[in-house]
């Protein structure tokens, strides 16, 4: 397998053939903000937070979708990029109902920590305060649409890893939302195996364990990488 050498933020980095800029950067310990990409799941390139500048290209590129190439010169942190990321996070915050202080993942939320990292101390847009619902019909899990940022991580984890495809997105634009089966209450779903992969992959408090005290839900989507590796190598812990 051929290996490329490229420059990210002034550092020489190697990438395997086919590897994305995001993966190469992460391997080298360079942090690029992201909300929808998860190692081991397909990348929809939806959140646009991982956009980077590539020398010689006049368009910004999503690091999760762009393959690393020999001699590439990538910049992940410029003031323009930072400003754009900040704007995106503010839009996400204004779009839903995010009250961190009472959220189940307060302190462990990827949206919250990204907002903090980008110094989002206020939102410049008028919040929409949409009237959204909470589905608590499942025996163990809850889905709070107020906190959903439509990153589709749960949809992909359910489809690509669990193989159940219980979850999907219905509607378009501002009416888009996560549904279970044919938009039935989750508790009525026949396809859901109750594995909980969606809950663990969700970057926000939208998917949560019922009865779990707030701020106690540490999530870690790293388990997906382990499952994939285990299936490939046929080694399970």
């Amino acid at each position: 397998m051929s290996v490329h050498t490229l420059e990210i933020d002034g550092r020489m980095v190697t990438a395997l053939e086919g590897e994305t800029i995001l993966a190469a950067a992460e391997d080298a310990g360079i942090f690029i903000p992201k909300l929808c990409a998860v190692e081991g799941l397909s990348a929809p390139g939806a959140c646009r937070l991982c956009m980077v500048e590539i020398a010689g290209q006049n368009k910004l590129r999503a690091a999760c979708l762009t393959r690393a190439a020999e001699g590439m010169v990538v910049r992940t942190e410029t003031s323009a990029l930072r400003e754009q990321r900040k704007l995106l996070v503010e839009l996400l915050l204004a779009e839903g109902n995010h009250v961190c202080s009472v959220c189940v993942v307060n302190g462990y939320c990827e949206l919250q920590s990204l907002a903090a990292a980008l110094d989002v101390d206020h939102v410049r847009f008028t919040p929409r305060y949409p009237a959204r619902t909470i589905d608590l019909s499942h025996e163990r899990f809850g889905l709070d649409h107020n906190r959903c940022i439509l990153c589709t991580r749960c949809v992909r984890a359910c489809d690509e890893i669990e193989g159940a495809h219980t979850l999907d997105v219905a509607g378009r634009g501002r009416t888009a939302r996560i549904i279970t089966d044919l938009a039935e209450p989750w508790g009525h779903s026949e396809s859901c195996t109750g594995c909980g992969k969606c809950v663990r992959t969700c970057p926000t408090g939208a998917l949560f364990l019922k009865n779990k005290p707030a701020a106690e839900m540490k999530k870690d989507s790293g388990f997906i990488r382990q499952i994939i590796a285990a299936r490939r190598e046929k080694i399970w812990i």
């Binding site: 009472v102 307060n106 909470i134 809850g142 009865n211 005290p213 707030a214």
Partner: peptide, 17 residues
């Protein structure tokens, strides 16, 4: 008022505020 329509499991955390 703030608690209405929220899941009961969240109450300890909301109330702690």
């Amino acid at each position: 008022k703030f608690c209405e329509r929220r899941p009961y499991g969240e109450m300890p955390a909301i109330m702690s505020r």
